Computed example of a mutant assay.
Amino acid sequence: MGLIRTLLALSVVFTHAGGIDLVGGRNAVQIFYMISGFLISYVITERKSYNSVGEFYISRYTRLWPQYILIAIISLVVFYFIRPLEADLFFRAFGSLNVVPAYFLAFSNASLVGQDWLMFAEITRGGFAFSSDFHKAAFPAYFGLLTPQSWTLGVELTFYAIAPFVLPRRWLILVLLGLSLSIRIVLVQAGVGMTDPWTYRFFPAELFFFLIGSLVQQLGSKRYQAMFSPIYDIGVTAVLTGLVVSYALIPSHELLKSAALMGCFAIALPALFRFQHGRKWDIVIGNLSYPIYINHILIITIMHAAGMRPGGILFAVIAAVLSIIIALAMNSFVGGPVDNWRKHLRRRSAPVVALSL
């Protein structure tokens, strides 16, 4: 699962850098949602890693926030001293807001909370107003984010908030799965369901992917392990890796390709999960996925400010290589120590005790 996750992160990098196509940003993000649902279901319902909801929240938040805030602070320094185009938009966003909305925007930048909501807002008359399409907004609110791609972390945090109460109750998973799918169908019928930002930024519709991953873990993981030997994991992982790399070359309608891609990943999650066990190299590669994702916009911004022309293969490769190098450093100095602390938190929790709800 680690290699796949990092390839998905690089797919987002290439989407923003241009020049190279893998599965695209939207597909990569929604596959990440499924993987997240699978893994969170595992730690809550099977491994039962935490004694309390509070410990779960602390562990998940500290998985995301330390590396995020590091990049956010560096981005603020870059904006202040190097002054790329993004800096003018960022400071203009704060300058256009009244005190209370400006405090909310600052709080969102500092905490990650609500960044996904800002994708549905524009700045006008000193405050925020709803915008159904930020592409058409006069001044989108996300211009005020230091790391605009971290809106996905706001979606993740919302899922984490409800996961301890939903995932142990399979009937509730099914109910919410149906509701989420119904919301997506209504959005499509309303004419916005296939357009950004409604395609993959609206949590009630995206909850479907988290819950599909959770349901696969609960219903399919043990069955897969009983039916197939570990040798199948290698084949499944190889096929999915090839699919991610060659996706853009498949001659088919994008909607059909995307649906098939999601279906393949949903079915393959138990194999991908078991594949990483006992393969330290896969875990090490997978640990690069989050820091790559969180640092790559900063890398691309600095490359733009340095006068490099975006859109070509060379630009994309340089952005990817620099993102990987920075990710290695982030894991060494931030991610590693934080993960050690999180492991200590899990060890203090009795592994056979369910979450206290």
Rank of each mutant, 00 (worst) to 15 (best):
G95W: 06
Y103Q: 07
I250C: 06
I20P: 04
F202K: 05
A306R: 15
T15R: 13
G144S: 04
S180C: 09
F104L: 02
P101L: 05
L181C: 11
A121L: 08
P351N: 08
A268M: 02
M119G: 00
G25L: 07
G312P: 01
I285C: 10
A121N: 06
A110G: 13
L174Y: 15
A319E: 04
P291A: 12
T152S: 14
R348S: 13
L146R: 03
M194Y: 11
A138D: 10
T124P: 00
F159C: 07
I71K: 03
S214A: 15
I44L: 15
V284C: 07
N287G: 15
W198V: 06
V188C: 07
V338N: 11
V186Q: 07
F14A: 14
R125C: 01
F94S: 08
L322D: 05
R346E: 13
R348M: 13
K280S: 13
S41F: 07
V23R: 03
L76F: 13
P148H: 09
I212K: 01
M330S: 12
L177C: 01
A17K: 00
P168T: 14
S59I: 01
A354W: 03
K136G: 04
A260N: 06
I292A: 15
A350C: 10
N98Q: 14
V284T: 15
Y142Q: 05
G286S: 13
G154N: 02
G278H: 13
W65E: 03
R279E: 12
G127T: 12
V77G: 04
H304R: 15
S111R: 00
G312R: 02
E86H: 02
I73C: 09
D116R: 00
S246L: 11
V13L: 03
A259W: 07
G2M: 07
G312S: 14
F90L: 06
A138T: 09
S332Q: 15
Y68G: 05
G307M: 10
A354V: 03
L187I: 04
G114W: 03
G154L: 04
F165R: 09
K343P: 05
W65L: 12
C264K: 08
A354D: 14
V100K: 15
S108Y: 10
L112I: 13
I173T: 02
I162H: 12
T6M: 03
V12R: 05
W341M: 14
I297D: 00
I123R: 01
V77E: 01
D233H: 05
A259P: 01
H304F: 14
N340P: 01
F165H: 08
G2N: 11
P84A: 08
L345P: 10
K257G: 11
V216E: 00
A161L: 14
L249V: 07
R309M: 12
S356W: 02
Y33W: 08
F14W: 13
L355S: 13
L7Y: 09
Y80A: 12
R348V: 06
L64M: 10
G144P: 00
V239Q: 03
A320I: 01
L146W: 02
E254Q: 13
R169Q: 01
F104W: 08
L105P: 04
Q30E: 14
H344E: 15
